[in-house]
Design a protein around this nucleic acid. Structure first.
Lengths: 346, 346
DNA sequence: CGAGGTGGTTGAAATGTTTCATTCGTGGTG
DNA sequence: CACCACGAATGAAACATTTCAACCACCTCG
């Protein structure tokens, strides 16, 4: 804990070597192969490091090693707790592998995503996990071409030039709507958009499929489009829903994610609709706030942390294992029934 | 966009130089001082870079420059949207300065925080923003001693050896409780804990101060302690509150943050209490979910993004400006009145 | 006594970039 | 024609680390 007067430059291995009276190679050995150096010198070196307040310079290590000790996750929407939970899963895995994790947020904007990716490639991160704005964007293909391992999260790979980790969204849509049919609803709204988001399309498709299979008329599954997957958009969908003529008004809504569902719920309550009696609601993702809503939300649960952990595992395998095979990991979503569909006595 | 066959190594300036038939110094000039190189050669070099798919190696730059082009934010609780918003503000500032941002999450665990800090110092980040688990922890002092600029976020510095950015939490507590007194409440609960969290202590103190100033008996301000600032703890506080004998049961609760308030709200609603008629609730932070709750939450607003932006500004100043003066930036919180205190007709 | 091994240490090379003093060539000026 | 100035390009050094072949005592065994 003693300390040389700050001379403006952080002490390097060279300084440590000088202070301990050994060669620079020996210091490096103490750092990387403590076993090969004799106890006496090792202690001397360690003491010198402590005295000088030596800290390894990671950039120099990287330069030499050719790759950094970091992983990156570029998430689609930092404001959505779902992605935070995925990130948490990734961080756990990164931590276990003793890697740093860059968490970036594209906020749904392709140009911001692309800037992040550029920086990450420059940093020579070991791998990139990404929930992309557009899975077919050229800058993604570019990454793959460069050879940086990358894994798509929450989106199944179409091309197959890389790993991906996702939940079966079509199945999720089916489960949700089947639950509503089960509970006797005959007119149901699907709330979600924009259609450019694959997750929305697939959840909607699942809903449609099951609706048809039960022989329900297509016009009784009403699509309420939204411009984003946010609470605000959920509220506005609520307004439109409340404005429908009662003849057409659905008795239940399946929302493409929980944020929409919470917004819808809020508007419904404040408009005096009783949930679930006047309007049942199913969300998607099962974020913590879903259970915490004033009327706890029925939702389709995704294994959020596990999604992240698996993605990290795959990207690490790709980085380390020369004969890595790309993998498309699919998880099965599950319905969590709560009060918002009357599945639980309040 | 043409591309040499991958020979296993990413192309370097040297390769570009060879391909363009110029010296390595010239390539560097094209990269860093395009003005000094003639148009003809510049174009030749740029073409070579594109052909080879050249990407600057950030570690080598760093090594040479002695510092990285990155900032870091170590947040206290990634699950709390408040910190996400602060992070968003920081990211905006980092982006403007063309810096990468490491976002780390200590999750309230000192040992995890310390591991993150170690890594960040090794990376030679330009500066560290942190909402610490314990502002007096020795590893923080250590950072300062090493000379890495750092700024405390959402926590005022006591020692003053560094900048800090925070909201006046005592004032926030005062505002909240004053609002409740205004609305005629005579028995109020303060919900929050643990006491080791400075923010909680100060918000509580503000509440007490104003309560006394209005001449209210101390025993009518009831402290309901919690073990964390989470929705779950809010629910459990709700149970305890509901269990109080009606003689002592408060008609209003001031929660140390919005997560607690949402949990409390949820339990209250499911226990059949009407909010705000049977129980008024005030939260703290004004996260987006507060407005989105089924009974929109009255809350004490902090300028979340601005907190982040300011913190980033300060740390950048400290990194760049040799005669930087440490600054304690304090923001003024503001009450946002909503339905949960009956301040707005539903 | 010499050969061979061994545990410990060393020195040099290599990683990719930036900087800076130097050199080169050319065109203008006295 | 000699000199200078100037724009353009160059080459070497420096940054902090890791690796690896070489080396050095010293010991053991034949």
């Amino acid at each position: 804990m003693t300390q040389q007067p700050r001379n403006g430059r952080a002490p390097s291995v060279k300084d440590v070597a000088a202070a301990a009276g050994v060669s620079l190679g020996t210091v490096s050995n103490v750092l990387n192969r403590p076993a090969v150096v004799s106890t006496a010198t090792r202690e001397r070196v360690e003491r010198a490091m402590a005295d000088l307040g030596f800290v390894r310079n990671e950039s120099a290590r990287q330069l030499r090693a050719g790759t950094s000790r970091a992983l990156a996750y570029v998430m689609l929407d930092g404001g959505n707790p779902f992605f935070q939970d995925v990130a948490e899963g990734i961080e756990i895995a990164a931590d276990a592998a003793d890697l740093s994790l860059f968490v970036c947020n594209s906020g749904g904007r392709a140009e911001r995503e692309s800037r992040h990716l550029d920086r990450l490639v420059q940093q020579r991160v070991q791998g990139i996990l990404i929930t992309p704005v557009d899975p077919d964007a050229p800058h993604l293909a570019e990454i793959a071409r460069r050879g940086t391992p990358f894994v798509m999260v929450d989106r199944l790979s179409t091309a197959g030039g890389h790993c991906s980790v996702a939940v079966d969204d079509v199945l999720g849509g089916r489960i949700a709507v089947e639950h509503l049919i089960d509970r006797g609803h005959e007119r149901v709204a699907f709330v979600g958009g924009p259609g450019s988001v694959g997750q929305v399309r697939e959840r909607c498709q699942g809903a449609r499929e099951v609706w048809e299979e039960f022989g329900r008329p297509a016009e009784d599954l009403i699509h309420l489009p939204t411009e984003a997957l946010t609470v605000g958009e959920g509220r506005s969908a609520g307004e439109r829903l409340a404005g429908l003529p009662s003849r057409r008004r659905p008795t239940a809504a399946f929302c493409a994610n929980d944020l929409l569902a919470l917004g819808l719920l809020q508007h419904a309550v404040s408009a005096g609709l009783r949930v679930p009696d006047d309007l049942a609601i199913v969300g998607f993702d099962d974020i913590d706030f879903a259970a915490a809503a004033a009327v706890p939300l029925t939702s389709v649960r995704q294994p959020r942390q596990e999604l992240g952990r698996t993605a990290a595992r795959l990207v690490l395998d790709e980085a380390a294992n020369p004969d890595h095979r790309h993998e498309q990991a699919t998880f099965v979503p599950a319905l969590v029934a709560r009060a918002s569909t009357g599945a639980v006595r309040r």
